[in-house]
Design a protein around this nucleic acid. Structure first.
Lengths: 262, 262
DNA sequence: AGCCGACTTCCGCTGCGTGGAAGTCCAGGT
DNA sequence: ACCTGGACTTCCACGCAGCGGAAGTCGGCT
């Protein structure tokens, strides 16, 4: 039925790779895309020549480094991560918790940085990981600062419940998002996995638009989440200022020596 | 002239983005690829729908987050980085220098991790950055442990000189590479940029193949590079063991408590 | 030896993609 | 106000690039 354009075929091949399928053989790719073996073979080879796929000793294909290289050119992946990283390191030294930097993509958050602490709860968030906005601290912050229409669009979509705590009721979410906008911070408990709490605040860029969110995750029942808010907001303001956010610039004098120009 | 397949056209569009061209308008893409505006327009839109490109308020296109997400699925980008990161953090705490994790791709090294220290020399290496093997510490380590044919292939290619110190003479390089194999460490001075020195050692994976290299860069004339070798080899061995390298496993007992299983 | 599955290569027909052309929109100049 | 040029968007008919069937190769397992 649906006939694909050849650009779509190329993308479909890349799309069959995911965290559960890091390495696939030619015929697996063929089966998953539904393309004939000969078509798959030709396209896969073109992708391999370019470096988008690479072939290993066992004959299986994986995503190639050329894609990794390209991905870092995404403004949210490269520049944002690059400016945020020193601030995130400081935050990690101060808190010894897992730190995430998330940006919006579709109805999801993508983590463009994920610093794992060694001795804390394992969280399922890796660099490049994608999670629904309504189920993560960073996602809720981003959603709270999105346009009205976008929020309603997300609230109207299928809201998957990962734990019994996951907020899936549109009215409860509307209320929560209003709180986040008012207080400037999202604090959630066991939304995505049990026994984990997350605290997240927005990061602003040019024209004070919210472009990302920093979040911290800790085991439930550890230090009061509220005690982490000052450290988080300091980090977020530092990053916002480095990104040129007007509202953060007012505080420039106070923190100027932390990040001298350049 | 050379007729392109449509897969190649798609890839060519992605390929026009680089560190100097993070955001391009439709007609810039059209000019750079040499495709007609209508062809470019159609392909760019297909890429945008899929998430490979994204379009911004000013009408320009950038690489999309979907590509970043995909890139982390590359085994060298995702798994390797993920296992190496805690060790690299430890190394950075101990040395306060710039740390790089490089893997081979073609004749180049690609940095799959780059931890910048705040107070040291700026180095031009970012996550996802690509540099010629013969001009970087990590690259020389990787080259030294490559197959004979590959080494000769690289030595026979155009070896660009970035500074007056850059090793470009094939015979000098052969000699240097032999030293690296013997000593297990590459120490270079001002190869890529002036007043910077780099120390790098190999990381081994399954079957003891060299799969990556850790490197450290410091201002020239700081602490003797040799004093850093123990810290680097410890880091490299830790990562190698975590990757399942047989030679590193012998030392498992000694360092077991640093990284309890999982 | 024979079978099966995975991969590779070849080639003729066809339907997708190409590029020209026409149309829209906006900014800047006269 | 009108024109001009540049950037972008849409449409369509033609031609050839790419699709998929089929045949061939390789290697592993019974």
């Amino acid at each position: 039925m649906t006939v694909l354009t050849s650009a779509q075929r190329v993308l479909a091949i890349l799309g069959v790779f995911d965290t559960e399928n890091l390495a696939l053989s030619l015929s697996e790719i063929s089966r998953r895309t539904g393309f004939t073996l000969s078509t798959t073979h030709r396209l896969v080879n073109e992708l391999r020549c370019w470096g988008a796929l690479s072939r290993h000793a066992d004959g299986k294909y994986t995503i190639g480094l050329r894609i990794l290289e390209l991905g870092t050119l995404a403004p949210q992946g490269g520049q944002l991560r690059e400016t945020a990283l020193p601030f995130l390191h400081d935050l990690q030294h101060a808190t010894h918790a897992n730190i995430h930097l998330g940006v919006p993509e579709g109805h999801d958050v993508i983590y463009v940085e994920s610093l794992r602490a060694r001795d804390t709860v394992p969280v399922p968030s890796r660099l490049g990981g994608r999670w629904p906005m309504h189920a993560t601290g960073t996602g809720l912050v981003l959603l709270a600062h999105s346009s009205q229409e976008f929020q309603e669009e997300v609230l109207a979509s299928e809201l998957c419940a990962y734990t019994v705590n996951t907020l899936t009721d549109p009215d409860a979410l509307r209320h929560f998002l209003a709180e986040v906008r008012k207080s400037g911070v999202a604090i959630v408990e066991s939304q995505l996995t049990y026994d984990v709490m997350a605290v997240a605040v927005p990061i602003r860029g040019a024209r004070d638009r919210v472009v990302a969110a920093v979040g911290i995750t800790l085991p439930s029942g550890s230090a009061s989440p509220h005690s982490l808010v000052p450290a988080l907001t300091t980090t977020a303001r530092g990053i916002s200022r480095a990104l040129g956010a007007p509202s953060a610039a007012h505080f420039a004098a106070r923190e100027a020596r932390r990040a001298p120009n350049r």
